[in-house]
């Protein structure tokens, strides 16, 4: 239990450090939905760092598959449910200008009122959905 929490804290610190690196060097918020959204039409003019950041994220996934595939976890829902989930996540994060990283990590850290409201909201609807559908471990 203590080990799990320590690893979680360390993983979180790494996420925070990576986001801080992007802030220091590019002056950008490491919000994944925003980084991806900026590449979709009408695309933002600053595509270079966005493509590079996502490429790094994907590289981490590819490396993880080689090093510790079990740590990545397996899907728990039917493909149809996952597709519906993806549509909602894409639509919602674009409408609400952020996800777990942009509002959660960066926004809360900066003391943003909008991000706090967003986090409370998506945690609440996420909890209700998870409670209704189940499937946790």
């Amino acid at each position: 239990m203590l080990l799990t929490w320590t690893i979680a804290l360390g993983g979180g610190a790494l996420i925070g450090a990576a986001a801080a690196l992007l802030l220091l060097t590019h002056g950008r918020i490491a919000g994944i939905s925003g980084v991806v959204g900026g590449l979709l039409p009408p695309a933002a003019t600053d595509r270079g760092w966005r493509v590079a950041f996502i490429a790094g994220l994907l590289a981490a996934g590819a490396i993880a598959a080689l090093v510790a595939p079990a740590a990545l976890g397996a899907p728990v829902r039917s493909p149809l449910a996952v597709v519906v989930a993806g549509l909602l996540v894409g639509f919602g994060t674009n409408l609400g200008n952020g996800c777990t990283s942009g509002h959660g990590v960066c926004g809360l850290s900066r003391g943003s009122v909008r991000s706090l409201a967003a986090v409370v909201t998506f945690m609440a609807t996420g909890a209700i959905t998870a409670w209704l559908v189940g499937g946790g471990s």
Binding site: I32, P75, V76, R77, A81, V82, V84, A85, G86, L87, L88, V89, G90, F91, G92, T93, N94, L95, G96, N97, G98, C99, T100, S101, H103, A117, A118, V119, T121, F122, M123, A124, T125, G126, A127, I128, T129, A130, V133, G135
Partner: peptide
């Protein structure tokens, strides 16, 4: 937007 995102997150377990 946040509410819709949360439903998708709770449904699929992925953000």
């Amino acid at each position: 937007g946040a509410a819709i995102f949360g439903v998708g997150w709770g449904l699929g377990g992925l953000c």
